[in-house]
Simulated assay, not measured.
Amino acid sequence: MRKKIFKFSILPIIAGSIFFSFTPKETANLDNYAISPDLELEYTVGSPEDTMALEASAPKIVPVLGKSYTGFKEALAFKESRGNYKALNEFGYMGKYQFGKGTLSLIGIKDTELFLNSPELQEAAFYANASRNKWILIRDIARFEGKVINGIEITESGILAAAHLAGPGSVKKYLRSWGANAFSDAFGTTIEYYLKKFGGYDTSFIEPNKKASALAYRA
């Protein structure tokens, strides 16, 4: 009796050994097997509202683009609008880079609705504005680059970022007064903050142009 029990008890072990001796591909390949239409499969799928809430709570990720021109403009865009082409704030500044109507007019853009709905035009506007500002500030860039004002090392990219915030005239006044003539926007953001935050980028790609027009640079 004990011998028979031993024989029967070892059979499952042998069967299991044979089954697991197959490769994973042989034992796990289920592609050739159809699922029965009578089989009920239960899935847990969140509602669209749940998905949107999850996306909204997820941290915003800024792409790492180094100190290139692209890195410069994307970092500035993230500060201005979180990179949103449709952004429009309470003071009327619009788009990814938060342009005002006056600045847009200077670089050849009159139709603000077209501007808000055209990422290509917004990118062209950023370059055109930076190009114009670089032409206006070219002597100040040459004079002050590498100098330290109020503990901040002055760089070309920092100057251009500050000009985007406050206009080239305000940046001239700040630099030529060695930081005594300060400026802050409606939200309290200062020229010094932009000089520091956006310093050290390679903006040599931007050519100075007195008459820069966004329409000329539009893709």
Rank of each mutant, 00 (worst) to 15 (best):
S36C: 08
F8N: 11
K101G: 05
F126V: 07
R2M: 12
E26I: 15
I136S: 08
T155G: 06
S170R: 13
I136H: 11
K196S: 10
L121M: 11
E207G: 00
L160W: 00
N133W: 00
N129Y: 02
R2W: 14
I5S: 10
F205W: 12
Q122L: 09
F144C: 08
I61D: 08
M94T: 06
A77I: 02
K60V: 12
K4N: 11
F183D: 08
I141S: 01
N133G: 03
L195F: 01
T190E: 04
Y93L: 07
A180P: 02
Y201Q: 02
L30H: 11
T190Q: 05
F115M: 09
N181Y: 09
F8Y: 15
N32R: 07
G146M: 07
G151V: 06
G108S: 11
Q98V: 06
L195A: 04
G199K: 03
A142S: 13
I191F: 04
F99H: 07
N209P: 00
L104K: 04
K101H: 07
G46V: 10
K79Q: 15
L65G: 04
F20G: 09
W135S: 10
I191S: 03
I141M: 05
G188H: 08
F78K: 05
M1G: 15
N129V: 02
L175Q: 04
N129G: 01
P208H: 04
L54H: 05
S170G: 03
P208W: 00
K197Q: 15
T190Y: 03
L215K: 13
A128T: 00
F198V: 06
F183N: 08
E156Y: 06
E74Q: 13
Q122H: 10
K7S: 13
Y217K: 14
D38P: 02
P208R: 01
L39N: 12
Y174M: 10
L11W: 04
A186G: 06
A125E: 00
K60S: 14
K60N: 13
F72T: 05
P119F: 07
N209I: 00
D140L: 08
E40C: 07
L76R: 01
D31E: 14
V148L: 04
F78R: 09
T70D: 14
P24K: 09
A87W: 01
T103E: 02
R139P: 01
K60H: 10
M1Y: 15
I18G: 08
K101Y: 06
D202I: 10
K73N: 07
E207S: 06
G146S: 09
G188V: 07
L41M: 13
S57M: 10
L175R: 02
K210L: 12
I35V: 15
S213C: 08
F99P: 01
D185I: 02
F20A: 14
W135N: 09
G71P: 04
N117G: 13
K197S: 15
T70P: 00
S177W: 08
T70N: 14
P24R: 08
I107E: 00
S36D: 15
K110E: 15
K96W: 01
A142L: 14
D111Y: 05
I138T: 07
